[in-house]
Amino acid sequence: MNTLKVITSFCFAIIFSASTSAQEKIQILVLGTSHYNEEKDSLEYKEVIDKLTDFNPDMVMGEFVSPQEYVSLEPDSYRRKVNDSTFYYYQHLNAAVKPNKKKMEKAAARLVAFPNLHRSRIDLAVQLLNSYDLGNAKYQIYVLEKLKKVHFNKEEAAAYKTMLGGTEKLVQHNLYQNTSEYNAIIFPLMYRLNISGIYPADCQVYDTKWTQAWRIVAYCMHFINRIAEMDDTSEEAKIVKKIRDEKNRIYSESDSLGLYGYRYLNSSFNAEESDLVNFYGGEKLFDFSKNYPEKEVREMIKYWQLRNEGMAANILKQAREKKVKRVLVAAGSAHQKWIVDILEEQPDVVVIGYNDL
C-alpha cells in the first residue's frame, strides 16, 4: 500500500511538473491581417475583436519598426520613403517638444487609469511622433479621433488643431486610416483591454535588397506575361496557366470549407496564395519550366525569410524581456505562416492559431 502511495505521488509530481512547464510557456497568437478593412465588414471585425478579447493578451505587437531601427535604415528604404515626410512635418510643427521615453511610458500608463485626460493624450501623441514611435503615435491618435475628440473643450480642441493639425492633416499623413487593421481591430481591442501601448515587431533591415530582388523578378514576369499573350503554346503560357490553375485550386478548396475573411487570412490556403502571388509562382513553379526565373525568385525568398526571421526575433526578445504570458502579434497575412513556423521551433513558446479560438 505504501509503495502504491509513493508511485501515485511520483506520477502526480510528474503530471504537475509537466502542467506547470506548459503554463510557463509564452502563448503567441500571430494574427494574419488585411491592410485594407472595409466598413461593410464591421460585424466580422467585431467578431475578431471578441475572439481576441477571450485570448486576453498582455502584450500586443504590430508591423511597425522600432524607433532605433527606423533611424538606422537607408534613406531610400521603403519605410523611410513612406514615413519621413510625416515625421519631418510634425517634428517641425512641434520643434520645442523634447520626448523622454520614461515619461512617455508613465503618461501612457496614466491614460489607462484616467482615459479622459485629453490634453495629456495630445501631448503624448506629439512626443511619440517626435521620437519616431509610429505605432504608439497612431494608437493615441486613434483614441483621440475615434473616442475623445467629441468631448474636447475649447482649449483642447485648439491644442489638437495646433499640435496635430486636426483630422484632415492626420489623414493626409496616414496617421489616421479607418481601413487599416489597426483602426478596425487592433486599437479597439487594446482600448477595451486597457493595454497602454503596442510593441514593434517588424524588421526592415533587408528592405533595399528585397526590393532589388523583387524588381528583377517583376521585370522577368512582365515579359513572360507578354509572350504568353502572344503565343498560348509557349513555355511562358504554360507558366502563366500553372499560376492561374494553382490560384483557382486554392479558391475552390477554401470556398468548399467556408473559409472567408479573417478565417481565410489565417488559413494554410491564404499562406499558399500569398506565396504564389508574392513570389510570382514561387516554389510551385520550381523545376516546372526552363523559362521560369527560379534563381531570381529564390533570391526574393531569401530576403523574405530573413525579414520574417528578424520579426520572430523581435517578438521573442520583447516577450521574454517583459516576461509576459500571452502575446498577440498583428502582421500582414503573407507573414503569418512564415513567422509561426519559426516560433513553433522555440521550446518556451506555444503558438495559438486564430482559427482555433
Rank of each mutant, 00 (worst) to 15 (best):
I186L: 10
W214D: 13
Q177M: 11
N183G: 04
S180D: 14
D232Y: 10
G165Y: 01
V217Q: 02
D207R: 03
E181S: 04
L265G: 04
Y199D: 01
D207H: 07
T233C: 10
D202A: 10
S254I: 01
V217E: 03
G261N: 08
T162F: 02
L189T: 15
N225E: 14
C203F: 15
A184T: 02
D231W: 04
T211Q: 15
Y182M: 06
R249V: 05
S252T: 15
A159G: 01
V240K: 09
A201Q: 02
E246V: 11
I224M: 02
I195L: 14
I224S: 00
M163R: 05
M221G: 01
Y262I: 14
R249C: 05
N225M: 05
F223G: 10
H173K: 13
V217M: 03
Y260L: 11
A184H: 13
V171N: 15
I186D: 02
G166A: 13
S256C: 03
Y251L: 10
K209L: 12
M230N: 13
M230K: 12
A201L: 07
S252M: 12
I224A: 02
L189I: 14
Q204E: 07
W214K: 04
I195V: 10
Y251G: 00
Y260D: 05
R226K: 08
K161C: 05
Q204W: 04
N183C: 08
N194Q: 09
I243W: 01
M163L: 13
I216Q: 13
A218N: 07
I198L: 15
W214S: 11
R244F: 03
N178M: 02
M163Y: 14
K242I: 00
E236Q: 13
F223C: 04
K209S: 06
S254K: 07
G166W: 01
S234W: 06
C220E: 10
T167H: 07
K238Y: 08
P188G: 04
Y206W: 06
A158N: 13
M221H: 15
T179A: 06
K161W: 01
A237M: 03
L259Q: 09
D231K: 15
A159H: 09
K161H: 06
L170S: 07
M221L: 08
G261Y: 03
G166N: 08
K247A: 04
W210Y: 12
R244D: 09
I216K: 11
A201Y: 02
R226T: 14
Q172C: 00
K247D: 14
T211K: 15
R215I: 05
D255E: 13
E235V: 11
Y219C: 03
D231T: 08
E253K: 15
R215E: 14
I186M: 05
Y191D: 12
I239A: 02
R192C: 07
